[in-house]
Amino acid sequence: MNSEIFSLSERLVSSSYVRQGLQARRGHEQLIRLLLQQGKCPEEGWSESTIELFLNELAVMDSNNFLGNCGVGEREGRVASALVARRHYRLIHGIGRSGDIAAVQPKAAGSSLLNKITNSVVLDVLKFTGVRSVSSCFVVPMATGMSLTLCFLTLRHRRPGARYILWPRIDQKSCFKSMLTAGFEPVVIENVLEGDELRTNLEEVQRKIEELGAQNILCVHSTTSCFAPRVPDRLEELAVLCASMIFPI
Rank of each mutant, 00 (worst) to 15 (best):
Q30D: 08
R33S: 15
F138T: 08
T149C: 00
V140K: 05
S136W: 09
L34H: 12
F138G: 07
V122W: 04
L34Q: 15
L83S: 12
T118M: 02
Y89A: 10
T129Y: 14
L126T: 06
G110M: 08
R90W: 02
N56C: 05
G130E: 06
F138L: 06
S136P: 06
L58W: 06
V140P: 04
V125D: 07
E76H: 13
M61A: 09
A102C: 10
G73M: 06
S133W: 15
T149E: 01
H93F: 11
I117K: 03
Q105D: 04
S112K: 01
Q37T: 10
C41G: 01
W46Q: 14
E76F: 11
L150I: 14
L36G: 07
R86C: 08
P42N: 05
L126I: 03
G145T: 09
A82G: 11
L113S: 12
K107F: 14
N69F: 13
Q30L: 09
M146N: 13
G96D: 02
F128M: 05
K116S: 13
I32N: 11
K127F: 02
L91K: 02
R33V: 15
L53N: 03
C70D: 13
F54M: 10
R86N: 09
T129V: 12
G77K: 05
I101L: 10
L113F: 11
L123T: 05
K116N: 14
I32A: 14
L91Y: 09
E43Q: 13
F138P: 09
I32Y: 14
H88I: 14
S136Q: 07
T50P: 09
I95Q: 03
W46E: 07
S133V: 13
G73R: 10
I95M: 05
V140H: 03
R86L: 08
R90I: 05
G39Q: 00
F138I: 08
N65C: 04
R75P: 05
N65A: 03
S135R: 14
W46K: 11
S63N: 06
H88P: 06
S135M: 01
A109F: 14
L83Y: 07
A85N: 00
W46V: 10
H88T: 12
G99K: 04
E52N: 13
L55N: 03
L55Y: 00
S63G: 01
